[in-house]
Simulated assay, not measured.
Amino acid sequence: MTVKFGYGSPDHVRDVDAILRLAEQADRDGLDHVSLSDHPYVADLLDGYAAVGFLLGRTERLSAFVNVTNLPLRPAPVLARTASALSALSGGRFILGIGAGGAMDRITTMGVPAQRPAEQVEAFEEAMQLVRALSAGGDPAPTKHYPIGALKAAAVPAPLIWTGSNGPKSLAATGRQADGWIPGRAADWLSDRYRWSRPIIDEAALAVGRKPSDVATIYNFPGAITATPVRRTRDDEGRWIGGSPAQWIEELTDAVLNHGAAGFTLFPRGSDPYDVQVARWSQEIVPAVRAGINRESPALL
C-alpha cells in the first residue's frame, strides 16, 4: 500500500483559470491526485470527465478521477471505453471513481429512468466487473443491467477503482470488487460511520478470497489549513475542522500509522484562499507526513 495525497478541485465554470493553475502547481509539488465532482444536472459545473481529461493533458505526474462517477448517467460499457482512453492517453494516470448514484430525483431530470436502490447497487457491482472485463485480459459478457453484445476488451490495463459507497450492500460490493473506498459524508477514521462500514468491506473481501488490505481507504478530508495553530481541531461531534500545518501533520501521520489510512483528498475550508491552502498542503503538510511515515514504516511510501 502506498499512501496517496491529493486535493478536490474547484469545478465551477467561473473557476477555470484557478482549476488549471492549481493542477499545474500540484503536479510540480508532487501531489498524487486531483478529483472533480460529477453533477451534470447542475448547469454551471464543469463536466467531470471533460475536466479530468483536460487536466491529465496539462500535467505529467498527477493522477485524476471523478469523485465519484454518477453511474446512472454514464452507462458502464461507455464508461469502460472512456476509462481505457483516459488511461492510454495519460500513461495510466486515470483512476475510476464510481458510485451507485445519489440524488435520483435530480438524475432523472437528465432523461434517464429512475432506479430502485436495489437496482442501483446491482448495476454498481456489475459496472465494476464490466470495466475490468472490457480492459486488457478481460472477457466481457452480458449482465443483468448491461446486456452487451459481442464486445472485445481494450488492450489497456484496467484503472484502479475507488468507490464512494455508503449502504451495507454497496459496501459489500466494494469489498468484492474495488481497489479503494472513499467513505461517504467525509467520514474519517474516528467516525461511527467508518467503524460500522469498514468491517462490511473486510468481510465481503474475505468471502471472495481477497485480503481486506486489497481495498485501501482514501478519505475525502475537508478542513481549514490555518497559518497559526487553533485551540480545537475537531468540533463537538468529533469531526475534523482543521488547524495549522503542524496540527495537520500530527493528525494525518497518526491516521496512517495507527488507523490504516491509505490516502487523503483535501477539500479546503475556511477563510484563507483555496490556492493558499492547497500550497500549504502540498509544500508543507504532505512532505512532512511522508517523512514521518518513512521514518516509522518505509513500506507505506
Rank of each mutant, 00 (worst) to 15 (best):
T2S: 12
F5W: 07
G8I: 11
S9K: 11
P10Y: 15
V16T: 13
A18T: 14
L20M: 07
E24P: 02
E24M: 11
D27E: 06
S35Q: 05
S37I: 09
Y41T: 03
D44N: 15
L45I: 03
L45H: 15
L45P: 06
G48R: 06
A51N: 08
G53K: 07
L55E: 01
R58N: 14
T59Y: 09
S63N: 13
F65H: 10
R74K: 12
T82R: 00
S84Q: 11
L86K: 04
S90K: 05
R93T: 10
I95H: 10
G97C: 05
I98L: 15
A100W: 12
G102I: 09
A118L: 08
E119P: 07
A127I: 01
M128S: 07
V131T: 04
R132H: 06
S135M: 04
D139S: 13
H145F: 08
H145V: 03
G149R: 12
L151G: 00
L151Y: 11
A153K: 10
A154S: 08
V156S: 06
V156A: 08
I161R: 02
T163G: 11
P168A: 14
R176C: 03
P183I: 02
G184H: 10
A186F: 12
D188I: 00
D192G: 13
P199D: 13
D202M: 02
D202C: 03
G209N: 06
I218H: 12
G223F: 05
A224N: 08
G238S: 03
I241H: 02
A246L: 11
E250W: 00
A262W: 11
V289L: 00
S297Q: 13
S297D: 15
P298S: 09
